[in-house]
């Protein structure tokens, strides 16, 4: 087992464990911190596949900006010690069973679809580099890029209007 496999399995185990901890921890602040760890491991997967642009964008946008926004909102509401009442245990059990069943169906349906022999290119390849992606983004995808700036503007205006109401 080479270094790539070791890193892959380590990142996978940490990702699944922290995702479970994110769902099952009572304190919302702990949930946010576990989710940041999940985003770091997903960024590690991007780096392992040599998608360097997405690696750094995922770190800056998700683990940086969005999670800080979540933390700010939680601190604004002053509910750090707030543990939600567990009224209905059966609903929790039903939710866990539904999620596990969906997982079972997905794995059973996707394990024999002819993708077993397909390999993912690891550690090399030029398509994920910032130089190449930037050239394509500003040559072929200029119009979606500009439209996304309009989307950002409208989201900003919408957030301010909702917040002032």
């Amino acid at each position: 087992m080479g270094t790539t496999e070791v890193i892959f399995w380590f990142l996978t185990a940490v990702a699944v464990f922290s995702a479970l901890m994110m769902v099952f921890s009572k304190n919302p602040v702990h949930s946010v911190l576990w989710l940041i760890l999940v985003f770091f491991t997903i960024s590690g997967h991007y780096l392992l596949m040599n998608a360097q642009f997405l690696f750094i964008v995922n770190l800056i946008v998700y683990a940086g900006a969005i999670m800080v926004l979540f933390l700010f909102v939680i601190m604004l509401m002053n509910m750090e010690g707030d543990s939600e009442p567990r009224k209905n245990q059966w609903m929790t059990l039903a939710g866990i069973i539904s999620g596990g069943t969906l997982m079972l169906v997905l794995v059973a349906a996707l394990k024999d679809t002819g993708t077993q022999r397909q390999l993912v290119q690891m550690k090399e390849g030029q398509i994920g580099l910032i130089h190449h992606l930037g050239m394509v983004l500003f040559k072929d995808y200029v119009v979606p890029f500009e439209i996304s700036s309009v989307l950002f503007l409208s989201a900003m205006v919408g957030a301010v209007i909702i917040g002032k109401k």
Binding site: F8, L20, V23, I96, S98, M103, L106, Q116, R117, L119
Partner: peptide
Amino acid sequence: MPVNYYIFLSAALFCIGIMGVLTRRNAI
């Protein structure tokens, strides 16, 4: 690395997210 591993990892993370949506009560 076989792509199946990535499929299963993504399915696991997605289903954990679904479990969280179905079981938690806190909107955040």
